[in-house]
Design a binder for these strands. Structure first.
Length: 553
RNA sequence: GCCCCAGUAGCUCAAAGGAUAGAGCGCCGGACUUCUAAUCCGUAGGUUGGGGGUUCGAGUCCCUCCUGGGGUGCCA
């Protein structure tokens, strides 16, 4: 259940009731917000609406708050509604409702916390979208993790999500790639050949060339450039997919930019822009009159050589997105690509579509830190740390967690030493260890030969320890966290939630023992039930982050 | 020049316009014959970059200035 949403409705009922009676004057009720008080001693939820209504009601905020509290309908999960200056109405959850979360978690399993916001509407998350010209770098990894995690949250919010990867395997880029591999091939054969400045410098092409030499000798020397382009693309794309798979990222659709040309959609989009008066010819090229839509200058759509720019293709691509029936589209770009998005949105708008169905999510860079020093990553010389290398060094769980551990607006200093440290300093282990500790209890229980289903009818009202209740309160926050992620397009919240949940778990584990002899039998069974739910909840949260939930570490 | 992001505890960062701005690390002081201490408990630490404004209420919104990073192609 979405407690905040439900409480907001009840508060509206209270205001309406007070208005009917005449305790409050008639006025249009503003949006009622329910928030979490910073200080838990105030309660579990708070409503500041009375203060917003002082002008509307022409009454002192405390008087309004009093009216709300007095006319609140009976809410079964609320223990008390209290007032606090300057006009808060605070609510406290009943212990019974919190204890009930144990069964709720166990019944819903990997669906706990899910809620209906999307109502089955179709959403697309487009991310990574690197062209197959080389291995993924770490900052693509950030986009990948953010996109996949946001997609998971949107699925939990009842959206029908398509994960899409948009790429270009045509044009000059692929020509250069093919030439580069051709040169590397000749180098691998011991022939003199040098890469030009525009060629791809990374040594990964040399490794591909070595494999070619091993398999085919020099029999490929007469093959055309297209042959090498194809080999390079296929090999690199396979490795990109493999890298993403390691990160638990799988795409539903790989959308090839080339399809936009072969289907003629690019030209249709151009015609559409011309028809609407937003495209014109000048100097042998076609230009987008984007300056009329707020851009600082017009942009080239079709180069004088007849080839469309990436911008033209992007506009056609987004035009197609709405035609494909997506109600909501999230595009995830690194900060290095953020400048292109506004023009594309202008193009969508120019063609008569509401660009608001697209949300562009920009993330900042990732800096790798090793032994306190920044790891130099020079893309120009091809000496950059690849995502694969990072995965080799710290493992997928750490990559997923750390990429989520900052707001997308902040740069990440990825501490590679911390990421592999096996202690409570490392949040990855700290969170996963909570799951491990739960698993340990059940392992011990089984080893003692005790019945596996013993806790099935446990008396959960015995879970009265403040630590247990605090943990269950936090469990209830999962829905709110998911809602925040989806509505604000901020996937990082799940990492903070996971950490906070673990930070409430560990003290509970220390204080609320299960198997110790001094724990009376009914309480033992209630706690066993509690830890069964806790384990399930950590499995759920780790799954939302795309991380593994180990039984033992 | 213009655009985007950031500036919050010594460090790395949270904070959905609400109450006394929170965590972790580090520092200092405690706790292991453990349901694996890969953990817990406690202390200290702040003019939210500067200045103005809007609001009952601003780290959050507006204006302005400063500092750092990124972007600003008929490259993608």
């Amino acid at each position: 259940m979405r407690v905040r949403q439900d409480l907001a409705l009840r508060v509206i009922e209270a205001i309406q009731a007070a208005q009917t009676i005449g305790v409050l004057p008639e006025f249009e009720i503003p949006t009622v917000v329910i928030e979490k008080p910073r200080d838990p001693s105030f309660g579990d939820y708070a409503c500041p609406t009375a203060m917003q209504m002082t002008r509307l009601a022409r009454m002192a905020p405390m008087k309004i708050a009093e009216a709300i509290a007095n006319y609140m309908p009976e809410v079964e999960y609320i223990d008390s509604a209290s007032l606090a200056p300057p006009g808060f109405v605070n609510f406290r959850l009943t212990a019974g409702f919190l204890q009930g979360q144990v069964e709720e978690i166990l019944a819903l399993g990997l669906n706990y916390g899910s809620f209906n916001l999307g109502d089955g509407r179709r959403a697309q998350v487009e991310f990574v979208s690197a062209n197959p010209t080389g291995p993924l770098g770490v900052h693509r990894g950030r986009g990948g993790v953010m996109g996949d995690t946001l997609a998971r949250a949107m699925e939990a919010a009842s959206f029908d999500v398509t994960r899409e990867y948009y790429f270009n395997n045509a044009g000059r880029q692929m020509e250069m790639l093919g030439e580069s591999l051709n040169i590397r091939y000749r180098q691998a054969l011991g022939q003199g050949a040098e890469l030009g400045g525009d060629h791809y410098q990374g040594d990964y092409l040399y490794w591909i060339a070595l494999v070619l030499v091993g398999q085919y000798g020099d029999s490929l020397l007469e093959k055309p450039r297209e042959f090498f382009s194809k080999i390079a693309e296929e090999t690199i794309f396979a490795s990109i997919r493999a890298t993403l798979k390691r990160l638990n990222i799988v795409f539903d659709v790989y959308y090839n930019e080339d399809d936009l040309y072969t289907s003629g959609r690019v030209w249709e989009a151009l015609d559409e822009l011309r028809l609407k008066g937003y495209a014109y010819e000048k100097d042998g090229a076609y230009w987008f009159k984007s300056s009329e839509l707020g851009d600082e200058k017009d942009r080239v759509l079709i180069k004088s050589g007849g080839e469309p720019t990436y911008r033209m293709a992007d506009i056609a691509y987004h035009w197609h997105k709405s035609e494909r029936g997506f109600d909501l589209v999230v595009d995830i770009f690194g900060a290095d690509h953020h400048a292109t998005a506004p023009t594309v949105m202008m193009g969508v708008k120019a063609m008569g579509q509401d660009p608001d169905f697209v949300h562009v999510l920009i993330h900042q860079f990732v800096t790798l830190i090793r032994e306190g020093e920044q790891v130099r990553m020079s893309t120009r010389r091809g000496h950059f740390v690849t995502l694969d290398e990072l995965l080799d060094e710290v493992g997928p769980d750490a990559v997923r967690y750390f990429m989520l551990s900052r707001s997308g607006n902040s740069t990440i200093d990825f501490d590679m030493d911390l990421a592999v440290e096996q202690s409570d300093k490392n949040p990855v282990y700290y969170v996963q260890n909570a799951h491990v500790r739960c698993a340990g209890i059940f392992r011990k229980w089984d080893e003692a030969g005790l019945p596996a289903e013993a806790d099935q009818d446990a008396d959960l009202s015995l879970l009265t320890h403040e630590n247990e209740l605090a943990f269950l309160r936090k469990a209830l926050e999962l829905t709110e966290t998911l809602e925040l992620m989806v509505t604000q397009y901020e996937p990082h919240h799940i990492a903070f939630y996971a950490y906070e949940l673990a930070a409430l778990f560990h003290p509970t584990y220390e204080t609320c023992r299960v198997l110790h002899s001094e724990v009376p039998e009914p309480l033992r069974l209630a706690r066993l039930r509690f830890y069964r739910a806790a384990k399930q909840l950590f499995a759920r949260v780790l799954d939302l982050m795309g991380m593994s939930a180990p039984e033992v570490m």
